[in-house]
């Protein structure tokens, strides 16, 4: 028989040209915008935090995989995303070893311990931040600055929670001219990045929409000081890490549900927990813990919302 050399394989014989590293690249593009905004607002300190955090995440993944003689997957972009998100959750005056440690923890303990990308059950960045807040609460909850002038200041959520200080104007909140973590303040840029990812079909609008919507509703109904329905919705939505978390952390594929209904539940749950923690909890900010709790609930949500196969939920046909 002639020795023809052609390819044999299972169907389908066509594949989309879309691939995971490219999806991650879109996310990195969106996060890059936020990084630029952070640097404009908080200057060299922000740049240093971002640089250290990303380098630590990449190095941690590479060293871990080299040590275990696994293929090094730094190029898939997911470690860089974790590093950026950890950095964005840092107060401007944080010591630089804190984000470095957080990134390493996120990549090694939260992601690689469980088998790497696709196998972790919590969002690495959110879990990394929670670890830092528990271990070094002072470093993570102080050191707030107002952008540009560098004056120390309370964050809007601390003010809403009773700390002394004044709330910034709405437009200041939108542009990011307020005290807060370096990457969470620039609401407008986060919004642009998030919408870009929705446009690119990288993330599903359902999670951020239901997350932010629920927080807004609760803030409006219960968040006021003069009784029900007097809450300051705009301040609640634009402050803290809500936008950053809703667009970039709660939408993490690996740790969020795969069904449409499941994603609505994910957003609702995140919003509900965030509102509970913010309005009645001990912490001024609840986004991280809300996301982590819903991450853990994700397998359950997936099971609850499993689609029933075609032909099993219709009326019975006689014949």
């Amino acid at each position: 028989m002639t020795d023809y050399k052609f390819v044999v394989g299972s169907s389908p014989h066509l594949r989309t040209s879309e691939n995971t590293p490219r999806l991650m690249f879109y996310v990195l593009q969106a996060l890059f915008l936020v990084a630029v905004a952070s640097t404009i607002l908080f200057g060299v300190r922000a740049m240093a935090i971002i640089g250290v955090s990303v380098l630590a995440a990449l190095a941690a993944e590479a060293l871990w995989q080299k040590g275990l003689r696994q293929p090094v997957t730094v190029a898939d972009g997911s470690a860089a995303i974790t590093g950026l998100l950890i950095a964005f959750n840092m107060p401007p005056l944080v010591p630089l070893w804190v984000p470095a440690l957080g990134s390493a923890f996120a990549v090694i303990v939260v992601k690689q311990f469980f088998g790497g990308l696709g196998h972790n059950f919590m969002n690495p960045a959110a879990a990394g931040r929670a670890f830092l807040v528990s271990a070094w609460p002072l470093a993570m909850t102080s050191g707030w600055l107002t952008p540009f002038d560098g004056a120390t200041s309370a964050t809007p959520l601390q003010v809403l929670g009773g700390s002394s200080g004044s709330l910034p104007e709405g437009w200041q909140m939108l542009m990011g001219w307020r005290a807060g973590c370096i990457g969470e303040t620039s609401a407008l840029v986060i919004l642009i990045g998030g919408l870009y990812l929705i446009y690119r079909q990288v993330i599903d609008w359902k999670i951020p929409a239901s997350f932010i919507g629920t927080v807004a509703l609760f803030a409006w109904v219960f968040g006021g000081t003069d009784g029900w329905f007097t809450g300051d919705v705009l301040t609640h939505v634009l402050s803290g890490g809500l936008l950053l978390g809703a667009f970039f952390m709660a939408t993490d594929y690996v740790t969020s549900p795969v069904t449409k209904r499941g994603r609505l539940i994910m957003g609702l749950g995140c919003g509900l927990l965030t509102a509970l923690i913010r309005l009645w909890g001990g912490y001024p900010e609840g986004v991280t813990y809300a996301i982590l709790l819903m991450n853990v609930a994700t397998p359950l949500i997936d099971r609850m919302t499993i689609p029933r196969p075609f032909g099993t939920r219709q009326t019975k046909v006689t014949g």
């Binding site: 394989g9 014989h13 790497g116 990308l117 069904t259 689609p307 075609f310």
Partner: peptide, 23 residues
Amino acid sequence: VREQVPYTACVRCGVCVERCPNW
């Protein structure tokens, strides 16, 4: 065909769930 592209771990993006005609 892209047969030679190695496959990687599922990242649970959910696109297959959305597109599956048999749900």
